[in-house]
Amino acid sequence: MTDLADLPEFLAVAHAGGFRDAARVTGKSASGLSEAVRRLETRLGVRLLNRTTRSVAPTEAGQRLIDRLGPALSEVESALNVVNGFRERPAGTLKLNVPVAVARLVLPKIVPSFLASYPDIRLEVIVEDSFVDVLAEGCDAGIRYDERLEQDMIAVPIGPRTQRMAIAASPAYLGAAGRPDHPRDLLAHRCLLGRFRGGALTSPWEFEKDGEVVKVEPAGPLIVSTGGGMDLAVAAAKGGAGILGLFEAWLRPHLDDGSLEPLLEDWWQSFSGPFLYYPGRKHLPAPLRAFVDFAKAARW
Rank of each mutant, 00 (worst) to 15 (best):
L40V: 10
P119V: 07
G92P: 07
L135Y: 08
P262I: 04
L193T: 09
R47I: 04
M165H: 08
F294M: 01
L96K: 03
R197V: 15
G227V: 05
L263K: 10
E208H: 03
C139W: 05
G198L: 07
L33N: 08
L40W: 06
A166M: 01
L7V: 15
L48D: 09
P285R: 01
V234T: 13
G85Q: 10
V13G: 01
Q63I: 01
I110N: 01
T162L: 09
L105K: 02
G258T: 14
D257I: 03
G239A: 15
P157M: 03
D6K: 03
R144D: 11
P180G: 03
F10D: 02
F207V: 02
R195A: 13
R47W: 05
G245D: 03
A219G: 12
L11V: 07
F271Q: 02
Q269C: 01
G228S: 12
I154L: 13
F196H: 15
G159P: 06
L40E: 10
P285A: 07
K238D: 04
Q163S: 09
L80P: 00
G211V: 11
L96E: 10
G211C: 02
A103V: 02
K95R: 15
L48N: 08
G142K: 03
V100A: 09
K296G: 01
H254D: 11
G220E: 04
W300T: 10
M1Q: 07
T226Q: 08
C139Q: 08
V46T: 14
P221W: 10
T162R: 13
F247M: 09
E208F: 00
V106L: 00
L80V: 13
P157D: 06
K209T: 04
Y145P: 00
C191T: 06
E212R: 11
V216G: 02
E217K: 05
M165T: 15
K238I: 15
L115V: 15
S225D: 14
A22Q: 11
L107Y: 11
T59E: 04
A286D: 05
A168H: 04
L222P: 04
L244W: 06
G70L: 11
R148W: 13
M153G: 05
R161E: 14
W300D: 06
D140S: 10
I167S: 01
D257L: 03
L244D: 05
L115S: 14
S74P: 00
L276G: 09
E9H: 12
H189F: 13
D133W: 03
P58M: 07
E248G: 02
E128R: 15
A249S: 14
